[in-house]
Write a protein that binds this DNA or RNA. Structure first.
Lengths: 235, 235
DNA sequence: CGATTGCTTGATACCTCTCAACCCAGGTGG
DNA sequence: CCACCTGGGTTGAGAGGTATCAAGCAATCG
């Protein structure tokens, strides 16, 4: 099992063995309407504790995963420890499917989560024979690409205010009314996803609250009071 | 032919009808070792003038392209005209293959260039039957994704100096000795790719020249004098 | 030639980062 | 029970990097 590879190059606190009962994130519904076709997991669901590593950049990419519950982040590091989170993955998302022999990203559990493991080679065999598998994996890759491009626009051309607003709208989508963002991640995760620092994220949230665009009933619960104004910030 | 859709939302100068003889970019060799399998272009190569649009974001994505010569940029725009270039495409690259019904990016010619058009629907049919096509298209998608993730790291976590250094190293790869970056694009294109302004790009290049890391024999020709130092900037 | 385009450089403003202090909640142990 | 510690978050002061605004230069084009 690809747990406990090389430790991440700094920044992250040591993995807690006694896991604090953090607000478990209520995941998107994995409706099961798009099963893996002829593809079967190679084992039962694996549980990861908060901040535990699923795999590290450069490790042999023989396994990929489907998130069952919780949230997983995929990220890259620079030598000096700077981190860029590429994406957060929720229930139903695939991660770890790679073009080359090694993982191009590191994957870590944002909160306690469970994932199903798949063997990459069996997929590659099925790609040509099983239409359902082919379609799903391909569509996954294309949607990841589209999301990555949106993310580049955000990172390269949006201000801190716009970045945070976009982030909140994204996560509020998972709530019934689309107006409550329930966050599984810390401010540091938010910052490293948005290309900011935690202080700027915190200040920006405070400013949005002062301007009555949002409410902060709890640090991980953010209510969108003025969705229109927030959307305006998204151009 | 999908030329002359909606004009880009500002920023770009009007398309020149009488094309100035700009330094044509010497493309990567399209070695032909990975032909399109059973896939055939739907027509002869199409020529685009500098700054001409191949397709616009949102247009029906019925055609995709393979670059034969020249350089194409794919980019996204915000309402106010801010632009983020997602990628530059050189000979051999595919672009315009999309997961949804519409293009998610705008594509424009960086310099005079030629591309081969393919019909998307015929690929989708071949995806399940033709292994060569399937492999190539899928590999294209995965490599695009990997590149987009590298780009996110650059946009989110690198300084202007690091961004420019990375850019120069990238483009110098196409020269015989990997030490001469011959650019097909303007400083504005560089800036919009790197998430900077033209002034910052220009100042950064000047600084690199002052520090003797590069030489600027011409504005579009940049010689890397100290590759090691430049690579150090890439973490 | 004058006009335009692409590029460079300077002065200044401003946004975000850095460094620091502080708060709060939760857990731990005396 | 309370003191203490830790981790996550907020806020402030100041610095710094990049953007903005403006001027000027060189090459090209009409």
């Amino acid at each position: 099992m690809s747990v406990q590879f090389a430790p991440p190059p700094g920044r992250l606190p040591p993995i807690r063995t006694a896991l604090a009962g953090r607000a478990p994130w209520v995941p998107a519904i994995d409706d099961g309407t798009s099963p893996q076709g002829g593809l079967r997991p190679i084992g039962p669901a694996i549980r990861f504790a908060q901040d535990q590593e699923l795999y590290g950049e450069g490790d042999a990419a023989e396994t990929f995963f489907k998130v069952v519950s919780g949230v997983v982040r995929t990220c890259k590091f620079l030598n000096d420890g700077r981190r860029q989170i590429e994406a957060f993955h929720v229930a139903g998302d695939l991660l770890g499917f790679e073009p080359g022999p090694g993982y191009s990203l590191t994957a870590e559990a944002v909160c306690e989560c469970t994932v199903l493991p798949y063997r990459r080679r069996s997929v590659e065999a099925l790609l040509m024979t099983d239409e359902a598998v082919s379609r799903q994996v391909f569509s996954h890759a294309m949607r990841s690409l589209t999301r990555a491009q949106e993310h580049s626009l955000l990172l390269g051309r949006r201000s801190a205010l716009e970045k945070v607003a976009a982030f909140l709208i994204d996560w509020a989508q998972y709530s019934p009314d689309g107006m409550l963002a329930t966050l599984a991640m810390t401010r540091l995760d938010m910052a490293d996803y948005l290309g900011l620092t935690i202080e700027t994220v915190s200040r920006t949230l405070s400013q949005l609250e002062r301007d009555a665009l949002i409410e902060l009933p709890a640090t991980r619960q953010i209510r969108l009071k003025d969705l229109a104004a927030l959307q305006d910030l998204n151009s």
